[in-house]
């Protein structure tokens, strides 16, 4: 039997990261296929991308909640109903599967802060994978079907709008250049429009000075 909370945390963290990654990848694919952000699609077709996204979400949920069947953890058959500290280490049975993940965070489950951290990492990884695969997909698809047609993209669009017609790698330099060009104006107009008691106006000594 092994109920050392640190060992349980490690186990849960790895499983939860995979859950967050797969589910985030799925939701991202559904969202970008609905609004036409082609540069993040995993496939060249919106419908296929959407169904792939749904499949990723369902796979993430299934893998996370079914894993106790084949991975050793604090959910051995016959012990799931016990207090989560006194559970036996091993694989869960089908009949106990639903409660296998219900481990108190003081006994090795993940508290809200750890979940937020691992979810953020999973979501960033999902975006990165979409950007890389989307870049390959856009370039391969464009070179196969549109070679010699010239640049038909909207050069003004940046950020996610630019990804509707460009790959992530093509879009990044323009987006960042726009950010550098615009941020000064955004900051100054933001300070003018912001409440006179806004944090930055107070820090810059402008609190109460407007009007």
């Amino acid at each position: 039997m092994n109920t050392d909370p640190d060992v349980v945390w490690e186990l849960f963290a790895g499983h939860y990261f995979m859950f967050a990654f797969l589910a985030s990848l799925g939701v991202l694919q559904v969202a970008v296929s609905n609004v036409g952000t082609r540069g993040l699609w995993l496939t060249p077709h919106a419908g296929m991308t959407r169904w792939l996204g749904i499949a990723f979400v369902l796979t993430g949920i299934a893998v996370f909640f079914l894993q106790p069947l084949w991975v050793d953890g604090p959910w051995a058959a016959g012990s799931v109903e016990a207090d989560s500290l006194t559970r036996s280490w091993g694989k869960a049975s089908w009949s106990e599967l639903a409660g296998a993940r219900n481990v108190n965070d003081i006994h090795g489950g993940l508290d809200g802060i750890k979940q937020a951290m691992w979810f953020s990492l999973g979501a960033i990884a999902a975006f990165a994978v979409s950007a890389v695969v989307g870049t390959l997909s856009v370039n391969i698809f464009a070179s196969a079907e549109n070679s010699g047609d010239g640049d038909q993209t909207d050069s003004e669009a940046n950020g996610l709008a630019g990804l509707e017609s460009r790959s992530y790698i093509e879009n990044l330099p323009g987006s960042f250049a726009n950010f550098r060009a615009d941020i000064g104006g955004v900051w100054r107009s933001g300070l003018v429009k912001a409440d006179r008691w806004s944090l930055m106006n107070v820090l810059l000594g402008r609190g109460g000075a407007s009007e």
Partner: peptide, 27 residues
């Protein structure tokens, strides 16, 4: 069993987080 899964610390918080994440890209 369904209630045990829904009540768990992982399923519904993941749904809420995914909703935030999905809406970020949905405009």
């Amino acid at each position: 069993d369904l209630i045990r899964v829904v009540a768990s610390d992982y399923l519904m918080p993941m749904v809420f987080s995914l909703a935030m994440f999905g809406l970020w890209f949905s405009g």
